[in-house]
């Protein structure tokens, strides 16, 4: 005997809930995001090159100033060295203070700092 009101209908329909966007949508999305990322990366690389040039030029502009200051200090120290050498070697006849050990006029930065 059927229950009062009859049997309920047989559930034969497939129950497949929506499981997110399809494969091609995901692939497309990932491609888009990556493309934007690479675009920014490329732009950033070009920009980095320019930033580096800016930095290098800021240093180039300062080179003469710093070199001039260093040269004055080096010159003063060298003169002091020569004077000291003269004082030490005053008893040696024919000694030339500050004479290069090389037989040419090319500049050699001092290897030994006396003072």
């Amino acid at each position: 005997m059927p229950p009062p009101g009859g049997f309920e209908s047989v559930k034969y329909k497939r129950n497949l809930p929506f499981r997110g966007p399809g494969a091609f949508a995901i692939l497309g999305g990932v491609t888009l995001v990556s493309a934007y990322g690479f675009y920014r990366l490329g732009k950033g690389n070009l920009e980095k090159r320019e930033l580096e040039r800016e930095k290098v030029w800021s240093r180039i502009h300062l080179v003469p100033l710093l070199l001039a200051e260093g040269d004055r200090a080096a010159y003063a120290r060298h003169q002091a060295d020569i004077a000291l050498e003269k004082a030490i070697m005053k008893d040696v006849a024919g000694w030339e203070a500050g004479k290069s050990v090389y037989n040419n006029s090319k500049y050699e930065s001092p290897r030994i700092n006396i003072s």
Binding site: P64, L65, A68, E69, D71, R72, H78, Y107
Partner: peptide, 15 residues
């Protein structure tokens, strides 16, 4: 010339 004594005048002008 790399000698510090060579460019003292120009260096003072820069400074």
């Amino acid at each position: 010339n790399r000698d510090p004594a060579h460019c003292l005048k120009e260096g003072r002008r820069v400074t």
